[in-house]
Measured scan of single mutants.
Amino acid sequence: AEEIWQQSVIGDYLARFKNDRVKALKAMEMTWNNMEKKEKLMWIKKAAED
């Protein structure tokens, strides 16, 4: 689920960090860890469908 979420937001994060992939990935990891369980559930369901 986290991978699907990352694939959907990586472009936004890379743009925000001027294509600094290391910073973008760290920010994504922090965002994922801070997400509410119900927000993650949507992505977990999406992962299950694929």
Rank of each mutant, 00 (worst) to 15 (best):
residue 1 A to Y: 04
residue 1 A to W: 08
residue 1 A to N: 03
residue 1 A to P: 10
residue 1 A to H: 03
residue 1 A to T: 03
residue 1 A to E: 04
residue 1 A to G: 14
residue 2 E to S: 10
residue 2 E to N: 09
residue 2 E to R: 12
residue 2 E to H: 12
residue 2 E to K: 13
residue 2 E to Y: 15
residue 2 E to Q: 13
residue 2 E to W: 14
residue 2 E to T: 05
residue 3 E to N: 10
residue 3 E to K: 14
residue 3 E to G: 08
residue 3 E to V: 13
residue 3 E to L: 14
residue 3 E to H: 12
residue 3 E to A: 14
residue 3 E to S: 13
residue 4 I to K: 11
residue 4 I to N: 07
residue 4 I to L: 15
residue 4 I to H: 08
residue 4 I to V: 10
residue 5 W to F: 07
residue 5 W to A: 00
residue 5 W to I: 00
residue 5 W to D: 00
residue 5 W to C: 01
residue 5 W to S: 00
residue 6 Q to V: 09
residue 6 Q to A: 12
residue 6 Q to L: 07
residue 6 Q to G: 10
residue 6 Q to K: 10
residue 6 Q to I: 12
residue 7 Q to L: 14
residue 7 Q to A: 15
residue 7 Q to W: 10
residue 7 Q to G: 05
residue 7 Q to R: 14
residue 7 Q to S: 10
residue 7 Q to F: 09
residue 8 S to V: 09
residue 9 V to P: 01
residue 9 V to F: 05
residue 9 V to Q: 04
residue 9 V to K: 04
residue 9 V to I: 05
residue 9 V to N: 05
residue 9 V to H: 05
residue 9 V to Y: 04
residue 9 V to W: 02
residue 10 I to M: 11
residue 10 I to D: 01
residue 10 I to N: 03
residue 10 I to P: 00
residue 10 I to G: 03
residue 10 I to V: 06
residue 11 G to S: 12
residue 11 G to Q: 14
residue 11 G to F: 11
residue 11 G to Y: 11
residue 11 G to I: 13
residue 11 G to K: 13
residue 12 D to I: 12
residue 12 D to Y: 09
residue 12 D to T: 08
residue 12 D to M: 10
residue 12 D to H: 11
residue 13 Y to S: 00
residue 13 Y to M: 05
residue 13 Y to D: 00
residue 13 Y to T: 01
residue 14 L to S: 02
residue 14 L to R: 02
residue 14 L to I: 05
residue 14 L to W: 02
residue 14 L to H: 02
residue 15 A to W: 08
residue 15 A to Y: 08
residue 15 A to S: 10
residue 15 A to N: 06
residue 16 R to D: 04
residue 16 R to Y: 08
residue 16 R to V: 08
residue 16 R to Q: 10
residue 16 R to C: 10
residue 16 R to H: 06
residue 16 R to L: 13
residue 16 R to I: 11
residue 16 R to M: 13
residue 17 F to V: 02
residue 17 F to I: 01
residue 17 F to N: 05
residue 17 F to P: 00
residue 17 F to R: 01
residue 17 F to G: 01
residue 18 K to Y: 12
residue 18 K to I: 05
residue 18 K to S: 12
residue 18 K to V: 06
residue 18 K to M: 14
residue 18 K to C: 12
residue 19 N to T: 03
residue 19 N to L: 06
residue 19 N to V: 02
residue 19 N to H: 08
residue 19 N to A: 06
residue 19 N to G: 14
residue 19 N to R: 04
residue 19 N to I: 02
residue 19 N to E: 06
residue 19 N to M: 12
residue 20 D to S: 05
residue 20 D to Q: 04
residue 20 D to P: 00
residue 20 D to N: 08
residue 20 D to M: 03
residue 20 D to A: 02
residue 21 R to H: 11
residue 21 R to P: 07
residue 21 R to Q: 07
residue 21 R to M: 12
residue 21 R to A: 09
residue 22 V to H: 09
residue 22 V to I: 13
residue 22 V to Q: 13
residue 22 V to K: 10
residue 22 V to G: 10
residue 22 V to L: 11
residue 23 K to M: 14
residue 23 K to C: 07
residue 23 K to W: 03
residue 23 K to D: 05
residue 23 K to L: 14
residue 23 K to A: 14
residue 24 A to N: 00
residue 24 A to P: 00
residue 24 A to E: 00
residue 24 A to M: 06
residue 24 A to L: 03
residue 24 A to C: 03
residue 24 A to G: 02
residue 24 A to D: 00
residue 24 A to I: 04
residue 24 A to W: 02
residue 25 L to H: 07
residue 25 L to R: 07
residue 25 L to T: 09
residue 26 K to I: 11
residue 26 K to V: 09
residue 26 K to S: 09
residue 26 K to G: 07
residue 27 A to Y: 06
residue 27 A to T: 04
residue 27 A to S: 05
residue 27 A to D: 04
residue 27 A to G: 04
residue 27 A to K: 03
residue 27 A to P: 00
residue 27 A to R: 03
residue 28 M to V: 02
residue 28 M to G: 00
residue 28 M to Q: 01
residue 28 M to K: 00
residue 28 M to D: 00
residue 28 M to C: 02
residue 29 E to Q: 13
residue 29 E to A: 12
residue 29 E to P: 00
residue 29 E to N: 10
residue 29 E to C: 07
residue 29 E to F: 07
residue 29 E to R: 13
residue 29 E to M: 09
residue 30 M to E: 13
residue 30 M to K: 09
residue 30 M to C: 08
residue 30 M to Y: 13
residue 30 M to V: 14
residue 31 T to P: 01
residue 31 T to F: 12
residue 31 T to V: 12
residue 31 T to R: 08
residue 32 W to S: 00
residue 32 W to P: 00
residue 32 W to R: 00
residue 32 W to N: 00
residue 32 W to V: 01
residue 33 N to H: 10
residue 33 N to M: 11
residue 33 N to W: 07
residue 33 N to C: 08
residue 33 N to I: 11
residue 33 N to K: 13
residue 33 N to S: 10
residue 34 N to R: 09
residue 34 N to C: 09
residue 34 N to Q: 09
residue 34 N to G: 08
residue 34 N to V: 06
residue 34 N to M: 10
residue 34 N to A: 11
residue 34 N to F: 06
residue 34 N to L: 07
residue 35 M to C: 02
residue 35 M to G: 01
residue 35 M to Q: 01
residue 35 M to S: 01
residue 35 M to E: 00
residue 35 M to W: 02
residue 35 M to T: 01
residue 35 M to A: 01
residue 36 E to G: 13
residue 36 E to R: 05
residue 36 E to L: 05
residue 36 E to W: 03
residue 36 E to H: 06
residue 36 E to K: 07
residue 36 E to N: 11
residue 36 E to T: 14
residue 36 E to A: 11
residue 37 K to N: 12
residue 37 K to E: 15
residue 37 K to H: 15
residue 37 K to C: 15
residue 37 K to L: 15
residue 37 K to I: 15
residue 37 K to Y: 15
residue 38 K to I: 10
residue 38 K to W: 15
residue 38 K to F: 12
residue 38 K to Q: 12
residue 38 K to G: 12
residue 38 K to P: 06
residue 39 E to H: 05
residue 39 E to G: 02
residue 39 E to L: 06
residue 39 E to F: 05
residue 39 E to D: 10
residue 39 E to M: 05
residue 39 E to W: 04
residue 39 E to Y: 05
residue 39 E to I: 06
residue 40 K to R: 06
residue 40 K to H: 03
residue 40 K to C: 03
residue 40 K to N: 02
residue 40 K to E: 02
residue 40 K to P: 00
residue 40 K to A: 02
residue 41 L to R: 05
residue 41 L to G: 06
residue 41 L to S: 06
residue 41 L to F: 07
residue 41 L to V: 06
residue 42 M to V: 12
residue 42 M to R: 14
residue 42 M to F: 15
residue 43 W to D: 02
residue 43 W to E: 02
residue 43 W to I: 02
residue 43 W to P: 02
residue 43 W to H: 02
residue 43 W to Q: 02
residue 43 W to R: 02
residue 44 I to N: 05
residue 45 K to V: 09
residue 45 K to P: 03
residue 45 K to R: 08
residue 45 K to H: 08
residue 45 K to D: 09
residue 46 K to F: 10
residue 46 K to I: 11
residue 46 K to Y: 07
residue 46 K to W: 07
residue 46 K to H: 06
residue 46 K to Q: 06
residue 46 K to M: 13
residue 46 K to G: 04
residue 46 K to T: 06
residue 47 A to P: 03
residue 47 A to R: 03
residue 47 A to V: 06
residue 47 A to C: 05
residue 48 A to V: 09
residue 48 A to L: 14
residue 48 A to I: 13
residue 48 A to Y: 12
residue 48 A to M: 15
residue 48 A to C: 15
residue 48 A to D: 08
residue 48 A to P: 03
residue 49 E to G: 12
residue 49 E to N: 10
residue 49 E to R: 09
residue 49 E to W: 07
residue 49 E to A: 11
residue 49 E to V: 08
residue 50 D to I: 15
residue 50 D to Q: 15
residue 50 D to N: 15
residue 50 D to M: 15
